[in-house]
């Protein structure tokens, strides 16, 4: 498993899956700055790693924050989160016949890292679901559909 994650706690939990699953887990960086160059760097990193993973027939899971999908933490994080979600839908379309899944997990502040790690494992373990946004929390209820 290829892991791109700035959070040491989540990274440590995901490491436990490294030998059991194959694919990419890409956790969007909470520290993306205001400059466009930082947004572009984050999305470019996602592009390069996703391309590598799918070229090898391996699943991809992006992890973003629900608040970022709704724009609550400012433009840079919102552009990254929604950009990753839209890219997920396209990548899933392109790889569905090959049976390679691409999905997004939306976490919240109090989402247990162990829950995120467990869902990353589930989503990398099969052909379906694909192109989905999995909310690990309830803050999205009654809000805009991404």
């Amino acid at each position: 498993m290829t892991l791109r994650c700035a959070s040491p706690q989540l990274a440590a939990l995901l490491e436990a899956w490294r030998d059991e699953t194959s694919g990419l887990v890409f956790v969007a960086d909470d520290q993306t700055g205001e400059a466009w160059s930082e947004v572009a760097a984050e999305l470019t990193d996602a592009f390069n790693l996703t391309q590598q993973s799918l070229a090898n027939g391996l699943a991809v899971v992006f992890v973003v924050h629900n608040d970022d999908l709704l724009g609550r933490n400012g433009p840079p994080r919102a552009m990254v989160a929604m950009g990753l979600l839209s890219a997920t839908r396209t990548a899933a379309l392109e790889h569905r016949k090959a049976g390679v899944a691409v999905n997004v997990i939306a976490r919240e502040d109090d989402t247990e890292p162990s829950l995120i790690a467990r869902w990353c494992g589930i989503l990398m373990d099969g052909e379906l679901p694909t192109g989905e946004l999995i909310h690990l929390g309830s803050e999205h209820l009654g809000k805009a559909l991404p």
């Binding site: 724009g71 994080r77 990254v80 929604m82 950009g83 979600l85």
Partner: peptide
Amino acid sequence: FNYSMSKGGLVGLTRAL
């Protein structure tokens, strides 16, 4: 992939602004 990512990013920009 590139186009949809960019246009999804625009939706994120719209919401945040």
